[in-house]
């Protein structure tokens, strides 16, 4: 087990997560979200550094609150403890709503598209239960992404 992997394992009484230092380091590396996601194999279960996408601010209310819910989601779905997978799934859901949509679009546009998507997922019954809360699948993954970014 390498050091990075060990670092990301859930801690007793809590969930594995990135520190602010990790976040800043990865940001400095200048990895683009899309590029990073594209470089990972879907079968790859190793953790990856997380760059917080700009559009997340337009979507999430209070980040600390969202992160707490996100951690509960990650505890239930440890295979999502990878930013690239979370982002890829969010993007996939957005593209299902609008095939031409790209996460590189304007943050405002992405925020609005995500709002529509979350409502649509409730309409379609595409929900998950997190600590008892009934959330849209994408909503839960947005909180998980926040958890990995704070």
């Amino acid at each position: 087990m390498n050091a990075e992997h060990r670092f990301l394992l859930p801690r007793p009484g809590g969930s594995g997560r990135y520190t602010r230092r990790t976040f800043l380091l990865t940001a400095l590396l200048g990895l683009t979200v899309g590029g990073f996601a594209a470089s990972r194999s879907p079968a790859d279960t190793s953790p990856d550094p997380c760059v917080e996408p700009r559009w997340l601010h337009k979507t999430i209310g209070d980040r600390q609150s969202a992160a707490r819910i996100g951690r509960a989601y990650l505890d239930l779905h440890p295979n999502y403890r990878r930013c690239h997978r979370l982002i890829a799934d969010i993007e996939k859901a957005l593209k299902r709503q609008d095939a031409s949509f790209s996460l590189t679009a304007d943050a405002e546009q992405t925020g609005s598209a995500l709002q529509r998507l979350v409502r649509k997922e409730f309409t379609r019954g595409e929900v998950v239960s997190v600590a008892g809360w009934v959330l849209s699948g994408t909503e839960a993954r947005l909180y998980a992404l926040t958890a990995m970014s704070v």
Partner: peptide, 24 residues
């Protein structure tokens, strides 16, 4: 605490144009 987290996290999802979610 759970209720507060949910309300604060989902503020942007819990409003519409006519009824903008109040700031926190």
């Amino acid at each position: 605490a759970a209720r507060r987290d949910m309300l604060l996290a989902a503020r942007h999802f819990l409003g519409d144009e006519q009824h903008a979610a109040k700031p926190g």
